[in-house]
Amino acid sequence: MTLTDIVTRPAEGGAGGAALSLRTLAPAIFLAPAILMLAVYLLYPLVDSFRLSLLDWNGLGSDARFVGLDNWKKLASDTLFWEAAWNNILLAVFSVLVQMPIALVLAVVLDNAGRGSRILKILYFLPLLMSSVALGVLFKYFYDVTFGPLNAILDFVGLGYLAQDWLGDTRLALGAVIAVVCWQYIPFYMVLFMAGLASFPAEISEAAKLDGASETTIFWKMKLPHLKGTIRTAVVLSVIGALRYFDLIYVMTGGGPEGASELMATYMYRNVFSSFQLGYGSTVASGMFIIVILIASVLLRFSKRYETEV
């Protein structure tokens, strides 16, 4: 990297040689801390992860053994990994399908709620302040078969027969976790959509009203198309977030029961820190990286919109 040719200063200074070199080097000096941090804690680990993925190593001794692409071959036929990846995709799909409509409805509701909307928005937003560990533990007990309030509520409203072992049942565990993810993030997308709705020019809906359009028509024909970009951003965010999910699931189910809620990240963690397979765990991490980057770049290319106005 050559950081020369700085134009914020004359090409060659007259004041003095020492001052000049300092100025020519200015961009390098300003960038150095950021680049150093990113090189050490992002770029190097990224590369190192691929290196480790070629090893058979328990991480403790110096008995690391180079096994070439063996780990990658194993990964390709590792049904546990692919099931985990599939769960990530389910998480992504259901996150979008559940969060977007509810967030949109709530945004419209608050848009029409007048004075109460501010306080509602503030209260809705509370879950976003919580750490996923806190939420994971809270909901673990919320879902508890015997002591959890969820089954108690169902019982109370006469739906007691629906009571379940939410996190213990292989068919329900993933869904139960997805519900918590949605519970936490719906307000985020709601605020995003509210900002989008707020940027809809009032004159247009006034003009449409003069043209005889109903509120419903204005929403479907004008406001929703106006939100298209925002919704696209929301979908991209939601999907990328879902592919990298870890904390909440790790705390609530640890990937269980029987891998029913296993995600790529929890599977990686289990391999490294429970089974002490550093090499194979790194292969899983690198595989996850490739999948996330592939899906993200396809999505970003597809949506073409990178930024939104907050």
């Binding site: 190097y44 190192d48 870890f246 490294v272 991490a285 990286f289 980057i293 993200a296």
Partner: peptide
């Protein structure tokens, strides 16, 4: 976009 999990093991070792 980088999932931080890929950096976890190398950072742990480092």
């Amino acid at each position: 976009i980088v999932p931080i999990h890929i950096t976890l093991v190398p950072i742990y070792l480092m």
